[in-house]
Structures are given as C-alpha cells and as structure tokens.
Amino acid sequence: MEHGLLISIIYAFISLSVATIWGLLLGGIMMKVVARAHGRFGPPFWQPIIDIIKNNARRTSISHGIMYFLGPVFRIAGGMGTFLFIPFIYGSMVFGNFSFAGDLFLVMYFIFFGQLGMALGAGESGHPYSAIGVARGLSQMTAFELPFALSIISIVIQYGTLNITSIVAAQQGGILHWTLFTNPLATIAALIALQGMNMHNPFSIVIAPQEIPIGPPTEYHSNFLGLLQTNRGLFNIAKLALFMNLYFGGATNLFSMLIKTFGIYMITVIVGASFPRFRTEQSIRFFLGVPTVIGILAVLVTGYF
C-alpha cells in the first residue's frame, strides 16, 4: 500500500476509533447477553461508553507518582501497538493497518507490554490488592504464553511466514482453508490460551471480584480509569482480531469482521458463564498441563507431517 504518511495516520486513526468503539459495544452487548441469560434486563449496550465519559468528566484526580501516571499510558500503547500491526479487515485500505515481514512477533510482544507497564504503575499506587493482582496476572500470563507460543510456532511452520497478512492470504478461498480446519490442534491450544488472555472466569484471578475486588487498577480513578477502560475495548478487539486472522481466515469485509469477533468473544463469555474461578496455582497448572501438551503435539504434527 503506497500512500503518504499523512494518509496513513488518518487511516490508522479511523481504524483505531472504529475498533475501540466496536470493542466497547461488544463488551456492552455481552453484558446484555449475560443479563438476559440471568433473566434480567441488564445495562444498555452503550453503557461502557457512558462510563468512560463519566470517568473522564471527574473533576479531581490524584497521581501517586510518575510510574502511576505512565501505567495507563503504557497499557494503551500496548493496546494500540497490538492493534495497529494486525490487519483488521484483509485487503482494506483503511482497516488493513500496518504490515511487515515479522509483525507476528511484534504483536506477541505488545500483548505482554501493556501488562508490564500496568504492573509497574499499579505497583506504585501502593495498594496491597494491586500488588497481589499484578503478581497473579504476571504469573498467569507466563503460563498461558506457553501454549499460545507453541500454537504460533506451529502455524508459522505450517505457513512458512511470520507476516500476519500473508497468513490471512493463505487462508482465503473457502472455509476449509482456515487454520481451524487445516491445523485444529494449534487452534485448540490457542483458544484455551485466549480464555486466559481475556481474564474471564475461570481465569479471572487477576480481578477476582470476591477476593481482591478489582486487582491492579484498585487505586486508578477518574481519567486514568477512563484510559484503562478505553484500552479494555481496544485491546479486547485487538486480541479477537489476531485470533480471527490466525485461525478463522481473517475478514474481507466489515460485516464478516463483526460476526467473527462476536463469535470468538462469545466462546469466552460462554466459558466464563459456565465455570467458577480457579485459584492462582490451579490456573497456572492448568495452562502448563493439557494445553501445553496440545501445543507441543501441534508443533510436532506440523513439523513432521
């Protein structure tokens, strides 16, 4: 895609805004879905956006230090970084985002990056729950990175490229070309890792509502919290888009993108509604057990056959 820098920036901005709004609305729609399953009405589906406006409209805010201030900035940088190197809609000028030869590695790094910045920022806020949440989050992250990385290695061997756009291109031409069907083991390992990444039940040990009420962002408020919430929408959609691209054949138009991200998120919601929460050590053992074995199998299968 050969066009000027300014145009690229404008396109990236449009792409980011659409993704953020869709991510927030997706969160709201899921709250509504869960509420209907409970037999109640639930909040309106645009509630996350109102919350963000409200939080940014708070009159006062307090900073606990430089790292506290930078925590949400790192977080949203991680979210943006993850998103901007994933083709949101394959072949689209605006939503194609940036693409280069090794962007899969960069994306994997960015997924970790936001959490790390948040860990430092939350650590400086000095609240004990923040520290506990950070410790839990980082240990869980190390655990689910393993099956996820194995799965990525497997599909990298399969397609022979580290470029997400090329991987999507290889999956075009029919539903049976999707990684889901050509490499089911890698897909299963990665989808289990996605449950950990999304931090819903049973892997909600970071925010653990009845233990350490909301974990790391306990001290975050006002516009800091607004930034974190914005990132929650963006980062969520970035993860979903990554999985859509790697395993579900990407999206060639806006409509199929909406449907696919919704479907992938629905898996998390159904799993979350069906299981209670793990304890920290159970969660880590879980990821290091069956999903890792599946991931190793996927690598072996693609490597030797």
Partner: peptide
Amino acid sequence: ARFDMFRWGLAPRPTPRQAG
C-alpha cells in the same frame, strides 16, 4: 435479577477512588 439495578447504570464498585 428481580430488581436489577444495572439497567439504570448503577454498579457496585469496591474502592472509594472509583465510586461516585
């Protein structure tokens, strides 16, 4: 489910920093 305060945008919050 019976009274469902979430539909009015009310939500419980565990920390005074975030509550209004």
